[in-house]
Simulated scan of single mutants.
Amino acid sequence: MARKIITGCVFLVLFMASSCSQATATNSESSAANISGINHVAGQTVNLFSINGYGGTLTGNSCCIMIPDKWRPGLKVHIEWETDPEPYAHLPPLGTDEYRKAYALHKTKYQQHSTIVDIPQYGKERCGLTVHFLPCNQVKVTTVCSGYGTPNYPIKAPLKMKEPASCPA
């Protein structure tokens, strides 16, 4: 009986060790990267967003998403976000019953969006994943290290863009 227990324990230790080495091999092929976002749409707020389930922020960087160390064709991310089409709506004073009722009604106007986009090709240098929220619920992503508005930044869309009268289907 003791021999079966010892054999079982040895098997369990070997199994756990092989699982750890597999996880390490997989993780060594990807690195953690910051997530950030930039809203280009005037009169609309991005309340929250996520990339492959990892939450991002429009106020700086948040951590983290795993990005493969080497880019490959077909590399995609799933982006989900919530917008407030009336971010400057007038509400009653905070903390009152009237505020709670008005906010509950206001929140029903929030819109949920989701898309899958390609990650553009990158080399050894990549500095996180930045999502650009554009009119017509379009998004673009980049991994470049230079900041938005600098000459080498690939996304040139201006801030405070207006929604067109109709969006392409």
Rank of each mutant, 00 (worst) to 15 (best):
C167E: 01
A169W: 00
I35W: 02
V13M: 11
G53C: 11
Q44R: 15
N39L: 09
V139N: 04
M161Q: 15
E82A: 07
R72A: 13
S50I: 00
A32H: 06
P93T: 05
A23D: 06
E163D: 06
Q138I: 08
A102I: 10
Q121E: 15
G60L: 05
D118K: 12
Y153I: 09
V46K: 10
T59W: 09
S28I: 02
P92Y: 01
A42Q: 13
A104K: 15
E125V: 12
Q112K: 14
A104P: 06
P154N: 07
C127E: 05
C136P: 09
S28K: 14
G128M: 10
T130S: 13
K109E: 09
E80A: 06
S18K: 02
N27T: 04
L159C: 03
V131N: 07
P154E: 02
K156T: 14
L12S: 11
H78Q: 12
V141P: 09
A102W: 05
V41D: 02
A33E: 11
E82Y: 01
R72K: 14
H78R: 12
L75Y: 01
Q111N: 04
T142I: 07
A165F: 01
A165H: 05
L105S: 11
V77M: 03
G147E: 10
D69Y: 01
G149S: 04
I79L: 09
T130Y: 00
V141G: 05
K101D: 11
L75R: 06
H113I: 09
H132W: 06
C145Q: 09
L94C: 05
T7L: 15
F11A: 15
T96V: 11
T130K: 13
G43V: 05
K124P: 05
P87V: 03
V117P: 09
A157D: 15
S114A: 13
A25Q: 11
G147S: 12
M66S: 15
D69L: 13
Q22D: 07
I67P: 01
A17E: 02
E98H: 03
T26Y: 10
V46C: 04
L105W: 00
